[in-house]
Design a protein around this nucleic acid. Structure first.
Lengths: 248, 248
DNA sequence: CGCTGTTTTGATCGGGATCAAATCATGTGG
DNA sequence: CCACATGATTTGATCCCGATCAAAACAGCG
């Protein structure tokens, strides 16, 4: 049996994430925490928490673990269209589109809050800052998607992989998951390939190049960025599109 | 001087578009039409109606003409991340993100309605079906973006171009801009290249291949799809992601 | 310990980029 | 009406980035 989930600071990444987009009110945070604790769920690695074609009935807020959104073609080709990190929300669009047009799979063990449509509507209605933060988060996930299109469409392999690492760094930072340039990185080279539109073999060689020039270390699912500025330069990375509030 | 804009059925594509996502109420349509007629604007071909870095102060609803959203890298490489067609809305996210993270350029002469933030909020508050339709439209533009990522990341050139043509067909159809398989297609091969992540030369050769197999005709800015089913098959196109209501 | 999945290396192949120039419009002004 | 400039499409030739194929090395892990 799975051990019970410790409820201590479970909601922390969500609060940090939403707060990096909109300043949340004390009251809003309280409502949010309550809604989260009422719907705790977990999923194993390699498990899909939603699949293409599924009806959309609830939203899911990721408390810990990594997932990816992906689509597959008939012949098996797979494209990861985004990663879902702690604090991120899946499908706040629950109101609008009735059916999943892509799948969401866990890369690691995941703890998330499953909030039914009605409860989520109630939460949004309860506090304006919360509602705006969620909508904002939805819009940012769409700006990220645009940047991915640019990345895959117009950057060469080295730039492309570097760009992805820069983005993930800048998304993990506000939720406190970067420690002195290092973060957990539970993404296989095959996943990386499917996310960048490259082959796994070429991702391997690209990573070696990034290692070789001293920009990163990536070993045992731990990524360390030694020279963020240089990595951003090789990627032509500018973080505007993440719309993260600057504090400190 | 530019001739005055005839106000007759100007809002028609917008109504058709939104109605293809949510059934609009009579009252909502009336409010919508009024808001549109109060903010008429036009833009010339090759003119940007919004640029990366601009503050976002109003939304724009396209009444006629084609535009594209694009981003450029420092060294000039350009990626078109989406096309904006008659009936489409730009940036209903006006509430949320304060700055454009991409540019929007006109491919043809364009007539659009520029609606200030306050007026748009009033419109949304005036009718629930209108508000839902706009949010829905925003979400669909995000699902389209995901599909573009897949298209560029995992499809080969022929499939990629075919897929884009299929998508544009299915988006133009509900707004009445497809006539017996034919539609206006004011997109140069260079634009097509920047939209698919290919080079212009290769787009040219790919189009020849599609012509050669009898699937399409594309001449003088007029696209005719002779065998939609076959085109969809070569593209592995499934229209779910457009979330268009089926009627007839 | 063998099984399974991930990373790494090596060798070859090919799709699409790039370069260069010709052809074909459109439009503009003399 | 012609001369010319500008931009789009087309064709041809060559090159290279990254795919593909195959196998080895290197993990965990039950």
């Amino acid at each position: 049996m799975r051990p019970p989930i410790p409820e201590g600071n479970l909601a922390q990444p969500v609060i940090l994430r939403l707060n990096s987009l909109r300043s949340l009110s004390k009251l809003g945070i309280a409502f949010l925490q309550q809604a989260i604790l009422e719907g705790l769920q977990r999923a194993g690695p390699d498990e899909d928490i939603a699949s293409e074609g599924d009806p959309v009935e609830s939203i899911r807020i990721i408390l810990s673990g990594w997932l990816c959104r992906y689509k597959t073609l008939e012949d098996g080709r797979r494209q990861i269209v985004n990663f879902v990190l702690p604090g991120d929300t899946c499908d706040a669009c629950v109101y609008l589109l009735t059916m999943m047009d892509h799948s969401i799979g866990a890369l690691t063990p995941v703890v998330y809050a499953d909030i039914k449509r009605a409860a989520f509507e109630k939460l949004l209605a309860s506090d304006r800052s919360i509602a705006e933060a969620f909508w904002c988060e939805t819009m940012v996930s769409s700006t990220i998607q645009r940047e991915w299109t640019v990345n895959i469409g117009r950057r060469v392999a080295l730039e492309r992989v570097a760009h992805l690492l820069c983005e993930l760094h800048d998304r993990l930072y506000p939720v406190g998951m970067v420690d002195d340039g290092s973060c957990s990185f539970p993404v296989t080279q095959m996943d990386l390939a499917d996310a960048t539109g490259l082959s796994a073999v070429h991702v391997n060689r690209t990573l070696q190049e990034l290692r070789g020039s001293g920009l990163i270390t990536l070993r045992d699912r731990l990524l360390t960025i030694h020279d963020l500025k240089a990595l951003q330069d090789t990627a032509m990375f500018t973080p505007h599109y993440l719309h993260t509030k600057r504090h400190g």
